[in-house]
Amino acid sequence: MSELRVGVVGVGVMGADHAERLVRKTAGARLAAVSDADQARAEALAAGLSGGVRVVADPLELIAADDVDAVILASPGFAHAEQLFACLEHGKPVLCEKPLTMDAASSLRVVEAEHKLGRQLIQVGFMRRFDPEYAALKQLLDAGDLGRTLLLHNVHRNKTSTPSFRSEMIVRDSMVHEVDVTRWLFGEEITRITVHTPKPTSLVADGVLDPQLAVFELAGGAMADVEVFVNFQVGYEVRCEAVAERGSATIGLGAGVFTRANERWGGAMPADFRVRFEQAYDIEVQRWVDATLRGEIDGPSAWDGYAAAAVCEAGLESLSSGKPIDVALADRGEVFA
């Protein structure tokens, strides 16, 4: 196969961005078809892209189509389980935006179903692993020059969120990125999570707990924290500091040129995630295409998606109770036996 024919399911903000990326930036791939619950939105997107992109009303029909070799799922999380099982049934490699599914139990069923095939087809869209700054931090920590990593501090702030973005979504749809980053940087599972809820901003609806502060405890004894604030008002800000035995390392201090002049200092702050992580998305999709053409995956696996779902599920329980909650994670050795 010299060219990967890709179908995109869900062409909202993220899906449309991926569709544009496939057409304009990605080598070795061709956007073959798109599908969305909003037919008019899908048709408008297809009309604006060159190459005769088909619009398919039924996402399951797109997945099964003979002219689609692989799929990007950018549909709402509640639809992922059914669509992932369809990808496995038809042997279609899939890049699935987070979450893998909406709960740990269904995510584990996806992991088990993929394992029974004897071939990895699912990659999860935790794009921060592909961001050059995060990749450099991972390389630095793995080299061991700073000694063992002891603590990880994370900040995840959005300028604004939609009125429908509730407290639970802050855990499942925003904090999930720091869950994956923490597991990846330490190379360990998170065993306990505590979600604290300080006084909320006055700029959200009653009952919405924003910001949130979570503490992760890892299997090896290290700890991580994350502040998630999705109505920060200033801009999109993601920072990460790793504290090790012989030093620390920080990423995300500025976007663009950081200046000092006229008794002032500062730099630009992006408006949203697509600007901050544009390069990460470009690298992620290109490497997914390249790996798929080789018959492999090159990124977070279905297990990574399941593990993140299990941590977030415990996080939702902690959000409700205010107590530390142990993460109930299946035994990996038994799952892959």
Rank of each mutant, 00 (worst) to 15 (best):
G315S: 13
S2K: 09
G10H: 02
A205L: 15
T250P: 01
A143R: 13
G118C: 09
I283Y: 01
D331I: 08
E334R: 14
K323Q: 14
Q212V: 15
D326E: 15
L45F: 00
T26V: 15
L73P: 00
K98G: 09
V9G: 02
G147Q: 00
Q279W: 03
E114F: 00
E284I: 07
I190A: 12
E133T: 05
M127G: 09
G235E: 08
E178F: 10
L319V: 04
V243N: 03
W288Y: 12
C87V: 03
K159N: 12
Q233N: 11
F258Q: 10
P300Y: 01
H177R: 09
D103K: 09
D17C: 01
V111S: 05
A143L: 11
A29F: 08
D331R: 11
G252N: 08
F165C: 02
K199P: 05
T197A: 15
E317Q: 10
A64F: 01
L316R: 11
G52T: 04
L185P: 00
A44V: 09
W303S: 09
A19H: 01
L84W: 03
R21G: 13
A205K: 12
C312V: 08
E188S: 08
F336A: 07
G247W: 09
A310F: 06
F130A: 06
L108F: 02
P59S: 07
Q120H: 08
